[in-house]
């Protein structure tokens, strides 16, 4: 067991827990924002640098502070460790810098982006970014690519979090897309525009923190905040069948996995559930979905009669960090 203090709040966690997981267990007030880390995907995290924190005391045994800010998603706790997140000016500064870097080549086309309203980059820049831009250079642009019948890749919006690459590696039978090129020319791409075609490919849409991978069956149908999320399930032989249906009036506009308060799906769902079963009669309705995040759709205006649920604590088991990057 290790005792760790984050922004003055102490928690005892199992050895091998990362600072981020410990912070999430304490609660959203101290949890650093994340763009690339995804607790359900092995070896994710470490790339975006939004979750940088200051370790002001290394451990009980070695109380020296760590010389640099560390990525909380990939740094494990030590007994007696003291971490500063929101309390640290250095962290606030660095995070502001990261937001600026992420937005540097981002098209800021939120008004026409399907992800708007549930976009992590929107939330991040609203909370940690600056209202003004300091660049007037041309942004890097790519052509839109249709990867298969259901998913469109809009590389301009991508922040290279590698989540979709890891989804393909870890939950589908074969990865046909990856990162090509280098530096700020890097892009997510399939090799020679091959279609991503397997039963779980749709999950790349759910894990994408921005609007780079979007659902073609939902394209331009509605702003997300005009749709009502409802928990539903069905008997599915491929996945758990537990989903969220997004209604506008009587119509199911889209189907997604159930996302927790950190914006991560509870379980990955298959393409049949996601793209091909869009009638209410296909589903057993459970009730309104409580949205725990802080996006515009979390206003939960359709839900006013419901008693607020207790905050669920993330009980994710720590990942064994394995060698290699993917």
């Amino acid at each position: 067991m290790a005792k760790v203090t984050i922004d003055g709040k102490t928690i005892e966690v199992a050895d091998g827990t990362t600072i981020l997981q410990a912070a999430r267990m304490i609660g959203p007030d101290v949890a650093p924002p994340t763009m690339c880390y995804y607790s359900k995907l092995k070896t994710s995290g470490g790339y975006c640098r939004t979750c940088l924190v200051e370790v002001s005391k290394g451990s009980e045994k070695d109380p020296r502070p760590m010389p640099k800010l560390v990525a909380s998603c990939r740094t494990t706790v030590m007994d007696g460790m003291e971490v500063k997140n929101n309390d640290s000016e250095k962290v606030t500064e660095a995070r502001k810098g990261v937001v600026e870097f992420l937005l540097l080549n981002h098209p800021l086309d939120c008004p026409v982006c399907d992800q708007a309203g549930e976009c992590h980059l929107q939330d991040l820049s609203y909370e940690h970014g600056s209202a003004k831009t300091r660049t007037d250079f041309e942004r890097r642009t790519f052509e839109k690519i249709d990867i298969g019948p259901y998913v469109q890749l809009h590389m301009n919006r991508c922040i290279l979090c590698y989540r979709c690459v890891k989804v393909a590696n870890q939950i589908t039978d074969g990865r046909v897309h990856g990162v090509i090129n280098r530096g700020d020319h890097s892009e997510i791409s399939t090799y020679v525009e091959e279609a991503i075609d397997n039963d779980f490919s749709g999950n790349v849409i759910d894990v994408c923190p921005v609007g780079a991978l979007t659902d073609k069956t939902f394209r331009f149908k509605s702003r997300v905040w005009f749709t009502k999320p409802v928990d539903a399930h069905r008997n599915c032989d491929k996945c758990s069948g537990k989903v969220v249906l997004w209604y506008k009036g009587e119509d199911v506009l889209r189907v997604t996995g159930r996302k927790d308060q950190w914006g991560e799906v509870e379980e990955f769902i298959c393409n049949t559930c996601r793209f091909e079963t869009k009638k209410t009669s296909d589903w057993t309705i459970e009730g309104p979905r409580k949205l725990d995040n802080h996006s515009v759709i979390s206003a939960n205006h359709y839900e006013f009669l419901k008693k607020p649920k207790e905050l669920t604590i993330n009980t994710v088991k720590p990942l064994a960090i394995e060698g290699g990057n993917n």
Binding site: C48, F137, Y162, G183
Partner: peptide, 21 residues
């Protein structure tokens, strides 16, 4: 450095290009 950045983490990927520009 802009040319050689691997593009994994955002500060280096975007920052090196920005400085060059």
């Amino acid at each position: 450095y802009h040319h050689e950045s691997c593009g994994q983490c955002s500060p280096c990927r975007e920052g090196t290009g920005w400085m060059e520009k």
